[in-house]
Design a protein around this nucleic acid. Structure first.
Lengths: 227, 227
DNA sequence: TTTTCACATATTGTCGACAATCGGAGTTGC
DNA sequence: GCAACTCCGATTGTCGACAATATGTGAAAA
């Protein structure tokens, strides 16, 4: 369903995928140096495919590369995240507006069911908070699909969602915004069901702004704790 | 000034750059197969750096790659361009709104001077229509810079502008929209000068919509001529 | 004639080794 | 004590050769 299913293609694709997963989950710390030889051996492949994977991750903005120096895991500082959420607000707002006119009734129904399953997971509170988080990305991606805009889907899916997941893992410990977020999701779906694109866009923008404020506060607390 | 200045770094960067240029200018036709060995020899390098360059171009959406099959120049069909312009409208609209609050007076003045030089070029009509086109991209990029959003600048600069340039070269023969476009540019700058972000966004969105309509008609004519 | 299969060729994927470049330890001079 | 310089180790950049896979051709069978 989601675009980041484990690929079985070339070694470069596998390496790219495993690296992305390690970066997103924090297994590889932000700013950490990525040694080609070491990673190649760990993955049981030569340096060629690994270098191609690094180029790919560079395109996805998950690593920063400097010629003749090497690659490092990207650092998600406040400014970067702020920029990310601003872009997301514009893109996902647009996705919502268009999806309101292009999604089928079936797709909207499936969106409702998705939220139902999220609600059950929240009520169970089975400790697995993060899986609900991944579900949240499912929700957003389904709306992007509803826009029928392939470029938009690619941008949100292949790049931004990875950065978002990274951010989520980083701040997942003290994540308590699941309740209000679910309510906002429901409102968005209802706006879509009524084919009210302008409202759907506005609700999505507010939803993302709210998420950013929540994240921003967490970062502030972290910074203060670190100081 | 623009992000596509000739790099002097690794061979992979050079290859990526030369390939991007060839693709954008149409020297490499849309959908054309890209043979690694042939290109490597033409550029006087091994296949390793060239493969890395292809990975990079894949990330920029200038080529489509299929594992074990090869890479092809992307095909800009109507749907792809429609998607591109829709995304651009959202992103550049956002850039305008934010730039209205963040650009310095100096930067806005430089924008005015840029438009003055464009006007002179148009009046001269020195055959070099395309150079005005590149200037148009300068205009848009300066506004993106004015937003102070690095991610937005990267997205507009490294990916979308390449596709846009490609589209421009393809349809540059019968390009006559320079006049009205310049007027719209001037209106946008005035909105920025008045720090009216909402107006600036609206004007930019209309500007891009107008450009899309113009392009769309050209494609229709081309399709009819081909049929 | 058409379809299908097998083979030959071309192209991509991968590896190991070598060259080029960078960062840091140690030294020297002020 | 501090700055700059030099050398060395480590890491990245590059190449050529080999293996794996796909594509195209031709022959054989229906």
């Amino acid at each position: 369903m989601l675009p980041y299913t484990p690929e079985q293609g070339t070694l470069a694709d596998i390496a790219s995928h495993r690296l992305a997963q390690s970066i997103v989950t924090g297994e590889l710390a932000q700013g950490q140096k990525l040694n080609e030889a070491e990673l190649a051996e760990r993955f049981g492949m030569g340096r060629g495919p690994l270098r191609e994977a690094l180029r790919h991750l560079e395109g996805m903005r998950l690593v920063n590369r400097i010629p003749n120096v090497g690659a490092r895991v990207v650092v998600l500082d406040r400014k970067t995240l702020s920029d990310l959420y601003a872009v997301r607000e514009a893109l996902e707002g647009m996705a919502c507006r268009i999806a309101a006119t292009r999604m089928t009734d079936d797709e909207i129904d499936q969106l409702r069911k998705l939220l139902d399953s999220h609600e059950k997971q929240i009520n169970k509170q089975g400790g697995k908070v993060y899986s609900q988080k991944e579900g949240d990305l499912d929700f957003h991606y389904q709306i992007a699909r509803g826009s029928r805009n392939q470029m938009l889907m690619d941008m949100l899916g292949s790049e931004q969602y990875q950065l978002l997941r990274m951010c989520r893992y980083r701040t997942s410990r003290n994540a308590e915004r699941t309740g209000p977020a679910l309510q906002q999701h429901r409102h968005i779906v209802e706006a879509l069901a009524q084919r009210d694109g302008e409202l759907a866009e506005m609700l999505m923008r507010r939803h993302i702004q709210g998420a950013w404020h929540s994240i921003s506060e967490m970062i502030t607390k972290e910074d203060e704790a670190a100081a």
